[in-house]
Amino acid sequence: MASANFDVNATDRRILRALQENGRMTVQALAERVGLSPSPCLRRIRQLEAAGIIAGYSAVVEQKTVGLPVSVFVSIKLERQRANNLDAFGEAIRRWPEVMECYLMTGQFDFLLRVVCADLEAYEHFLREKLTQLEGVASIESSFSLGAVKFSRALPL
Rank of each mutant, 00 (worst) to 15 (best):
L127S: 12
F111N: 06
R95A: 02
R128N: 15
L112D: 06
A118G: 03
M105R: 14
E101S: 05
C117M: 03
G107F: 07
E135Y: 05
Y123H: 06
R114E: 05
W96Q: 13
Q133E: 07
E98C: 01
E124Q: 09
G107P: 13
H125T: 11
W96L: 11
R94T: 06
C102W: 13
L104K: 10
E135S: 10
K130S: 04
C117W: 06
L127K: 08
A118K: 11
I93N: 05
L127P: 03
C102F: 10
Y103F: 11
Y123Q: 01
E121H: 05
L127I: 00
C117T: 09
W96N: 11
A118L: 01
E135H: 10
R95F: 00
E101V: 02
M105N: 13
L127H: 12
V99W: 04
R94P: 14
D110C: 02
V116M: 04
Y103N: 15
C117Y: 03
L104N: 07
E129L: 00
L112P: 05
A118V: 04
T106N: 13
P97E: 13
L113S: 07
Q108Y: 12
G107R: 09
C102T: 08
L113C: 08
E121Y: 03
K130I: 00
G136R: 00
V115I: 07
L104M: 10
E124P: 01
G136A: 04
